Amino acid sequence: MPNIHVLRTELDRTISALKDSVREKGLGTTVGRVAAVAAGQAAFPVTKAMRQNETFDFHGERLPYWFARYNNAFLNERTVEVAIAHWFLSQKRGRVLEVGNVLVHYGFQADTVVDKYEVIPGVLNDDIIDYRPAEPFDSVVAISTLEHVGWDESPREPEKVFKAVANVRACAKPGGRVLVTVPLGHNDALDEGLRTGEVKFPAESYLVRDNRRNEWRETTADEALTKRYGHPYTGANGLYVGMVL
């Protein structure tokens, strides 16, 4: 078993190197982003060895954090999102639709993937608000995707996300299951929809990131919806999970 003190020393050194690289190059520059990714990749084996047995609470379960190199997932909200998706799909999945081409990078291939912008074989480049499956699905998942709909498009259409949420749910057959995860603090319209109840799922959870180690805990909507995207930690600092089970 690795010496925990050695691992902590190596991780601290790697994090220090990451900070130095970002300070020197500027995170907003291409070189700065490359430096940040490279330092994160160097930290991966140390972080995984230190934290491979750690868990977080979600929906009455204790789930293991998901550690993956792709997109430095172990350093951001993917560490809980992919874990939740794995738990959700392991319960009962049948035919699966994924909105946004995410989970294939973490070892799961949906039966159908709809992603408007990722032009690669096997992905349908339909807009989710227009997509109508020939047959509804047993399970529908959307991981960190819906917050971009209408918000990160030109022209910006803030109300479009509500149509997207409705159609994601409509793609599931009666009695089917749906999982949606949304980083908070990115899309103001979607956050406000969560506050007012315009976006509402039968089962809901809110999580927040507590520290630099990327540990997460379940909390109230009121606390999670105060979190800013990208501050104080990279990526999401608050996360919404909506489900139809």
Rank of each mutant, 00 (worst) to 15 (best):
R156D: 02
C171L: 07
F108W: 15
E81I: 00
E118M: 15
W151Q: 03
A35V: 00
L75M: 07
A35I: 00
V96C: 08
G185I: 08
V149F: 00
L63W: 09
A36M: 06
E77P: 03
N211K: 01
V104T: 10
V104M: 08
L75G: 03
R23M: 02
A172G: 14
L184P: 12
P136E: 06
N101M: 08
Q109E: 15
G238S: 07
G60R: 07
N76H: 08
S16F: 02
I129G: 08
P45M: 07
P202C: 12
V6G: 00
R93F: 09
C171W: 04
A39P: 06
L124M: 13
H148L: 02
G238E: 13
E157G: 03
E159M: 03
L245V: 15
R213A: 14
G107K: 13
L18E: 02
T47V: 12
V96R: 04
Y106W: 10
T226S: 07
A170R: 15
A142D: 00
V123M: 10
G230M: 09
V149I: 09
D20V: 01
V149L: 00
P158W: 03
R195E: 11
S16P: 00
I84S: 05
H148G: 04
Q109R: 14
E147D: 03
A224G: 06
L146H: 02
C171I: 10
D126A: 14
V113P: 15
K160M: 04
V6Y: 04
V182R: 06
R217P: 14
G197P: 14
R217V: 08
K200I: 07
S90Q: 12
E135V: 11
N187H: 14
A73N: 04
Y229N: 13
V104E: 12
E118C: 14
D126N: 10
R95V: 12
A224K: 01
R228Y: 05
I15H: 01
A172F: 09
D12C: 02
N72Q: 09
A35N: 03
P64G: 11
E153Y: 02
V123S: 08
L225V: 09
E153W: 02
V244I: 14
E77W: 04
R228C: 10
G242H: 13
I4D: 06
T220L: 04
A110L: 13
I4F: 10
Q52D: 13
